[in-house]
Structure formats: C-alpha cells, structure tokens
Simulated scan of single mutants.
Amino acid sequence: MGESRGSRAMFTFLASWVRPAMNAMLGKEWLGQDRLPRGTGIIVCPNHVTEIDPLVVGHFLYSQGIMPHFLAKASLFSLPVVGTLLRTIKQIPVERSTAGANRSLEAAREALAEDGGIVIYPEGTLTRDPQMWPMKGRSGAARLALQTGAPVVPIAQWGAQELFPRYATRFQLFPRKRVRLLVGEPVDLSDLQGAPLTKGTLDTATDRILDAITELLAELRGEDAPAERWDPIAKHQKPTGRRFEVHDDGDSPAGPVTGDQL
C-alpha cells in the first residue's frame, strides 16, 4: 500500500535535518540490507546499547526506503507540536489500559499495512549486561508478530555507544566514531502462528528473536556471546531507569525490583 503522502513528506523533511547530522558525527557500515523483506510491513528488532540507537536504526531504515515507526509514550501525543508531529509520521502510542492497548495494536497494524517498519527493542530498555550483550527480553515484539503475522527482522548494531555512551550527558565527537549495523534473516516463528498467546509461547518467540540478535552482534564484535543471557531481575536490578547498578551486598540502589513483561 505504501506510506501516506503526508507521512512521507514529513519523514523527508525530518530526514533533511537528521541525516546530515548523523553522517557528520558517525561513520557507518551497513551490512545485510538484502535480507530486508520488501513489499510488506516488518517488525524490526535491534539490540539497545545507547539512547541514540533509534536515530541509528531510523537513519538506516529510511535510507532503505522503509519508513520507521517507533513506540512512544501516549502522553507525548497530547503535546501541541510534538503530538501533531508524531501523529503525522504515524508513530505508535503506547497505553496501559485495555482500550489503549487495542488502539496501539490498530495503529501498528495500519503502519504494517502501509509497508512501514515498526521498531521494537525486545529488551525494553538499554541493556543492563556489563559487556553490553542483549539481556533477557520482554514479549511485546513477539506478541505483535504473532498477532499480525508480520516478519520479524533482527538487527545488531555496534559503535554508536562510543559516540554517546549509555546514560551519558554529552556526545564524544572526537575522534569521529563509526557504527556497524548487520541485518539478519527474518526469525522463523511459523510453528507458533495461530497458537494461544500463552506465556510459554511468547517466551519461546522472544528467546528466538533475542538469540538471532545476539548471534548477529557476536559476528559484528568478533567475540563469543555469554552462555547465559543477563537477567536484570535475577541480578536484583531495576528494569527501568538509570540507577540500576548492583551493590556488593546484592542490593540495587534503585529500590524494589519489578517483573512486569510489557
């Protein structure tokens, strides 16, 4: 079907500002573009190591002719200017109520029907792994994939964290950094399609997605990934927020741990 004229025009306007800035700050090496499905909407699942990852992935997808759609807090859509912008480029509002979740799903379906790329970070937040490998994930990407049948494309990227380290307050511009991005084959979830969306089904799908991302990242880094995926809850870490480090006594300075799978 393709992206609407208004949405594409706004993407073009934003890209005219963002792409030159990204190219100036960050060299790039993109690999595996031929693995991107064409003529269909896709769910893009990258690893998450720094706050500027969405710019890196959005830059890549736009350059491949795929309009990127990110999940954003529903409250942002009520802001006068920001809300209008987000609605125009059809970003996906995330709400916690049942009715809100249904609206989010419908917005996601619309973006997929227009051959867009919905970007979902399966980890849910920046990785807590000390070596920055993908950590235990959440089920949102798997749920959307099984509800819509859209292909899930794993992506690994490495190097952007040198330009803007995790939870940094400023860019490290010099010397100029380089990001490498590798696209994998779509994750095979065919045996799970049509199955009840139980925790077991969603966990299986989520693990497959994260396994694919981890394998790609190991290739990019030229290193072996850990045998066991980092689990923030098991490590007594808060699942969101900056203050998540584990004290020597095993307690987190950030308060109680939650186990919500959003």
Rank of each mutant, 00 (worst) to 15 (best):
Ser78Val: 11
Val153Gly: 08
Lys199Asn: 10
Pro226Ser: 10
Asp129Gly: 11
Ser104Asn: 03
Gly241Phe: 12
Thr84Gly: 15
Phe60Arg: 07
Lys90Ile: 04
Val82Glu: 01
Glu245Phe: 13
Thr50Ile: 11
Gly124Cys: 08
Gln237Tyr: 10
Gly149Cys: 12
Thr40Pro: 06
His247Thr: 09
Pro186Gln: 09
Asn102Glu: 12
Ser63Cys: 12
Leu144Lys: 04
Asp191His: 13
Lys136Ala: 15
Gly58Lys: 00
His59Pro: 01
Glu185Phe: 01
Phe244Cys: 13
Asn47Phe: 14
Leu197Met: 10
Gly250Met: 05
Leu181Tyr: 00
Leu163Glu: 10
Lys199Trp: 04
Gly27Asn: 13
Ile66Leu: 11
Gly159Lys: 01
Arg221Met: 04
Asp211Leu: 08
Glu3Trp: 15
Ala160Arg: 00
Arg8Asn: 11
Gln64Leu: 14
Asn47Arg: 05
Lys238Cys: 13
Gly140Trp: 02
Glu110Pro: 03
Ala113Thr: 12
Pro186Lys: 07
Asp34Ser: 15
Met132Cys: 06
Ala254Leu: 13
Gly259Leu: 02
Leu197Gly: 07
Lys136Cys: 05
Gln157Ala: 02
Gly39Asp: 03
Arg96Gly: 08
Leu79Arg: 14
Tyr167Thr: 09
Ala142Met: 06
Pro165Ala: 03
Ala150Asp: 02
Val119Asn: 13
Val187His: 07
Gly83Asp: 06
Asp115Thr: 11
Ala234Lys: 03
Glu245Ala: 12
Leu86Asn: 02
Val82His: 01
Gln131Cys: 06
Ser7Gln: 05
Ser4Asn: 09
Thr127Ile: 14
Pro20Lys: 13
Gly159Tyr: 01
Thr125Gln: 08
Ser78Met: 07
Pro37Ile: 11
Thr198Ile: 09
Leu216Arg: 07
Gln157Pro: 04
Gly116Trp: 02
Leu31Glu: 00
Arg103Tyr: 06
Ala227Asn: 06
Arg19Val: 14
Asp207Lys: 12
Ser4Phe: 10
Ser4Gln: 06
